[in-house]
Design a protein around this nucleic acid. Structure first.
Ligand SMILES: [Mn+2]
Ligand SMILES: [Mn+2]
Ligand SMILES: [Zn+2]
Ligand SMILES: [Zn+2]
Lengths: 137, 137
DNA sequence: CTAGGATTTGGACTCTGTCTAACTTCCGGA
DNA sequence: TCCGGAAGTTAGACAGAGTCCAAATCCTAG
């Protein structure tokens, strides 16, 4: 997809079995047009930039709906807030602790080997690899 | 170390440049005698089990002090609370999302290869690998 | 003993996220 | 066109984790 419009956000939502309302389209557009990791707060600010039109409850409802439907993924690196990630493909994260900047690491070349067998009765939901870095002293 | 006493907690604290007060010893003992991942809340409950003697502010102050001094490490897997880990050696984590159970994976046999070079001007603080599992349906 | 720094404390406060009950929007059938 | 209900949105109350602060307490050097 080369360019993101409100119209193809509506298509994307429908493809994920989500009824495309005005608010949902705006929120999806905020995430997908930027291709960045955003907190709920940041989504709220972006969507209400020009004039308030989406409530906090709707932002959280919508992000959780997108998660359930597999449209986005959450990234847990900061103890104080969740980041939402429009990239659901396999990839890892680089987290700069000073600034809070979070960037993707392509999973293609990364190999994780030697993990022990899982305990009985469980299955893997996901493997998160986070490289924490700080600015050199 | 085969057995944990309040006395060798005091030694351990001194070795990490921490003045061993009564509260700090109790909190260290809660973590090290169990060798488990505990939230601040759980530490609070353990330490005040018999009779209240340590405030919430002190629990948080102390855990943060232990972190700074490298006596313990924090594990960020649950968006709603931090876990504190008395094991500072290199290891990874298995997180059972249904129950919140968090267990260690020895790092010895695990190899992570193919990570891209770090951006200029940053250095690695740590690499966290979290295997998220759920009970099989 | 005593002064002063270190530590602890209750409680107010902030922040992220959830919940609820009322309100609005949308849509299909009469 | 009109109606009724389902789906979605909303303000604001609420909950829980964690921080902050000024006052009280503890500890130790002198
Ligand atoms: Mn708009
Ligand atoms: Mn005690
Ligand atoms: Zn990402
Ligand atoms: Zn651990």
């Amino acid at each position: 997809m080369l360019h993101y419009s409100h119209d193809n956000m509506a298509e994307l939502l429908r493809a994920h079995d989500i009824n495309p309302t005005h608010q949902r389209i705006e929120i999806a557009y905020a995430l997908f047009s930027r291709q960045e990791h955003l907190s709920a707060d940041q989504v709220m600010a972006i969507v209400n930039d020009r004039h308030a039109e989406t409530s906090k409850a709707t932002v959280y409802n919508t992000l959780n709906l997108f998660l359930e439907k597999g449209l986005i993924r959450e990234v847990i690196v900061d103890p104080s807030k969740v980041f939402y990630d429009p990239n659901t493909g396999p990839h890892h994260h680089l987290y700069e602790v000073d600034s809070g900047r979070l960037t993707d690491i392509d999973a293609f070349d990364v190999r994780i080997e030697g993990l022990p067998a899982l305990p009985k009765g469980v299955e893997t939901v996901g493997i998160d690899l986070i490289v924490r870095v700080k600015r050199t002293a």
